[in-house]
Write a protein that binds this DNA or RNA. Structure first.
Length: 433
RNA sequence: GGAGAGGUGGCCGAGUGGUUGAAGGCGACGGUCUUGAAAACCGUAGGCACGCAAGUGCUCGUGAGUUCGAAUCUCACCCUCUCCGCCA
């Protein structure tokens, strides 16, 4: 991703402040500006040389077409001068390429400035903007809610040991009603988004090539978080965002096509290198999980309100399941390098007594689009400009399942199936014998 | 995986070394005509970079190379199509 050179020139102050707010180095902005000035100067010099050579070549062409002798002293002289300029062009180009490479590298290290209404600060500065539903109590009269892995155990719907055997730790296996629950949730969410929210369903590949991984910024920023198929130079997708957003890479979209709103299911693969810790129990942090992702391409003027809309679409999934949740507006240092504004949705899990992040909804403004060169044309004759991209989970399954199990468990070890899922799963899941 | 064909502007499609950034058609946009629309006719028009501008450069799948000069020649890679093999 990168902030645009144009914005850098016109609004350097805010980009600098944006870097500062995100805890990044604001000096990079000035370095980039200086390098950009050199680049432009160098470009002018190179272009002049090329123009000169072009003129000479044209003169040679004219001579020869007139029937001139290729060996005549005039032609030979012209050739000599042209060759000489050619050598100067080569060295000028080498300098340009070097400057360009350094500038590109710098640009990648300047973060997307946060929107003005985003609180400045770290985790402590993030604010809960609303909560929905009543967080279920851990202990009620006569019984205490168990963590989801224990609920799953008594229901016989996870086979974590089986997953560890066939793939490795962190690759869960769902069996019986557990498998059916996965399938039901995926279908429920996609149905909500397509039928009620008018999104177009995409069923993407589970691997992407290096260009796509670069497009959404997995390379080079998060390369060690991805599983790589080195033999074929492919990457297992960490989220459907990667293949779906890249669908329009290097395209100019007609204004009449916007907004484009996709919903896509995909398995998600993450190495989670170095993430072992307290919140990794059960299926809270795994190497493979399932997620329904929403991806939008918007007119810049509308992306602000689309972020709110997308967040509400994700919320509707939680509401449908009857899960209590809260919406957190992430502060500048809590939201990441590339987002302009981001909400996290956290569902209450009474067994582990914690809020679980089940969705993350972000507005990238034009930051991602610039990297992928996705533009739009407001009218058929106007100049193309960058689109705004947004995405949000709606929802990530593993943690949603954990919340469902902990909220809907009964003292007798059975599970009350949430009402929306009853047509697919029946009323109750009973403990395995 | 093997053999063959091919990748040119929004689309189709000419173009095999020298004003070709690229004929022609369709589509698009502006206009004439019309009550309105269609048709017809006239006109405009790719993208990117640098520049106040005039303009200059780059761009014919991608990257290297040959040449004074490459859409046109050479090499590698990618993709598409057809046939064969294999296969859920």
């Amino acid at each position: 991703m990168s902030v645009g050179l144009q914005r850098l020139r016109e609004d350097a102050h805010r980009v600098r402040q944006g870097a500062l707010d995100k805890g990044e180095d604001p000096a990079l902005v000035d370095e980039a500006l200086a390098l950009d000035a050199r680049r432009r100067q160098q470009l002018g010099a190179t272009d002049a040389l090329r123009a000169e050579r072009k003129g000479l070549s044209e003169r040679i062409g004219k001579q020869l077409r007139k029937g001139g002798d290729p060996g005549s002293s005039e032609v030979v002289a012209l050739r000599g001068r042209s060759s000489e300029i050619g050598r100067r062009i080569e060295s000028a180009e080498a300098i340009s390429a070097d400057i360009q490479a350094r500038l590109d590298d710098l640009l990648l290290r300047i973060p997307n400035p946060a929107d003005p209404e985003v609180p400045v600060g770290g985790e402590e500065a993030s604010v809960i903007v609303r909560t929905w539903g009543e967080p279920a109590a851990h202990a009620e009269s006569g019984w205490t809610r168990r963590p989801h892995w224990e609920v799953a155990d008594s229901l016989g719907i996870f086979d974590l040991a089986g997953g560890a055997k066939v793939a490795g730790s962190g690759f869960p296996v769902y069996r019986g009603a557990g498998a059916a629950l996965q399938r039901a949730l995926i279908d429920l969410f996609i149905g909500i988004h397509t039928r009620e929210h008018g999104m177009t369903e995409i069923w993407p590949p589970a691997v992407v090539n290096a260009e796509s991984a670069r497009g959404t910024g997995q390379i080079p920023d998060k390369e060690d978080q991805m599983y790589v198929v080195t033999r074929d130079d492919l990457y297992l997708v960490p989220t459907a965002e990667v293949p779906v957003t890249n669908l329009h890479r290097d395209e100019i979209l007609e204004g009449s096509r916007l907004p484009i709103r996709y919903v896509a299911y995909s398995p998600c693969f993450r190495r989670e290198a170095g993430a072992a810790g307290s919140k990794t129990r059960g299926i809270l942090r795994v190497h493979q999980f399932d997620k329904v992702e929403m991806v939008c391409f918007e007119r810049p003027a509308e992306s602000g309100q689309t972020l709110e809309w997308l967040t509400e679409r994700a919320e509707s999934c939680l509401q449908r399941l009857g899960l209590a949740y809260r919406v957190k507006l992430m502060a500048t240092r809590d939201m990441g390098f590339v987002q302009a504004k981001k909400y996290d949705l956290e569902a209450w899990a009474p067994g582990v007594e914690d809020w679980l992040e089940v969705s993350s909804v972000s507005n990238f403004r034009d930051y991602q689009a610039r990297r992928m060169d996705i533009r739009w044309r407001p009218t058929p004759t106007s100049k193309a400009e960058m689109v705004h991209t947004l995405n949000g989970s709606g929802l990530a399954l593993a943690r949603t399942v954990a919340a469902v199990l902990e909220v809907y468990q009964r003292p007798d070890g059975s599970l009350e199936v949430p009402e929306v899922l009853r047509p697919r799963l029946g009323d109750t899941l009973r403990p395995a014998l």
